[in-house]
Design a protein around this nucleic acid. Sequence first.
DNA 1: GATAGCTAGTTGCATTTGCAACTATGTGGC
DNA 2: GCCACATAGTTGCAAATGCAACTAGCTATC
Lengths: 150, 150
Amino acid sequence: MKNKPEKHTVLAWARLLKASAGLLAEVEKALKQAGLPPLNWYDVLLEVSRAGPTGLRQSDIAREVLLPKHNLSRLIDRMENQGVVTRSGCDSDGRAKQVCLTDIGETLLRKMWQVYGAEIQIRLGEPLSDAQQHALAEIAGILLDQESRH
Amino acid sequence: MKNKPEKHTVLAWARLLKASAGLLAEVEKALKQAGLPPLNWYDVLLEVSRAGPTGLRQSDIAREVLLPKHNLSRLIDRMENQGVVTRSGCDSDGRAKQVCLTDIGETLLRKMWQVYGAEIQIRLGEPLSDAQQHALAEIAGILLDQESRH
DNA sequence: GATAGCTAGTTGCATTTGCAACTATGTGGC
DNA sequence: GCCACATAGTTGCAAATGCAACTAGCTATC
C-alpha cells in the first residue's frame, strides 16, 4: 500500500477531472443558451420523476445527487417557486418532506432532456467507440462502488 | 449522426460525472481536514510552478485550469493576499499580468501534494488495475481532444 | 415514560461564483 | 495617424454555495 501515486495514475486522474469539468461546462452552457435551468435541476427532476407519484424525501434526493442537504433544501425552494415540484409533509415521518413532480416539472424534464441528451451524444457518443463507452462505464462504476464503500 | 444517445452512452455519462464529482468532493474534504486551501489553488500553483521563474499570464492560467477570467482574477487576489504568488505587469504586453510563484507558494504546493497525491493513490491507484488506468487515461484524452477542438 | 442522542430540514452569515459592464492596451485596415 | 475591433484584466451586483447553529420529530435505553 503505497501513498504516492504512479505517473500513469496521475495522468489518468488529471485527464479524468479535466475532461469531466470541461464536459460539464459545455453542457451547462448549452442549457443556458436554450434558456433552461442548470444541470442540477435536471438531476433532481429525474430522481423525483423516477420515484413516481408518491415522490421521495429530500434526504434521498440529496444522497443521489451528491448535494449537501442544506444546499438541496434551497434548490428545492427555487424549484418549488417555479412550480416544477411540490413539497409536502410526509405521513410516516413528521420531519421529512415528500417532493413530487408537477406537470410543469415533467414538461421541463423533457425539454431539458432534448438539450442534455443531444449533448451527451455529441460529447460522448460520437467521439468514443462502443467498446470505449463500455470500458468507461465499467471503470467509472468501480470508482463509484469504491466511493459508496465509504 | 444521431441526436439521441444510446442507453450505454447515457450510462457511461452518468457514471463518469457522478464518479468524478464524488472524487472531487472527497479530495476537497481531505484538503480541508488538513487545513489546506481548495483544489483550484493547487491547479494554479502547479501551472505557475511549471512555468518557472518567469511565471505566466493570467489568461494562460485561466485556459489551463478551465476557469473564467474574472473568476481567476479574484482567485489570484486571494492567493496574492496569502503571499503564495506575485502579480506583476508584463513587459511585452501592457494589459497582461505575470503571475509568479513565491517560496511560500512552493512550500504550499508541496504540502498540498502530500495530501492530494495520497488521495489520488487511494481513490484511483488502488481500486483500478494498471490496464484500467491506462484505458481511462486514453479515453479521457480523447474527450479532452474533442473539447479542445472547440 | 423520561432522557439522551440521532436524523430531516431550515436559516443566517460569510465566501465564492456568474454575469455584465468597464478600463486599458494591443492589432489591423484604410 | 486614425479608426474600429479584439484581448487582458478588474469590478459591482446578484445568485449560489459552504458552514454552523438551530428546530422539530424520531429512536433507543434505562
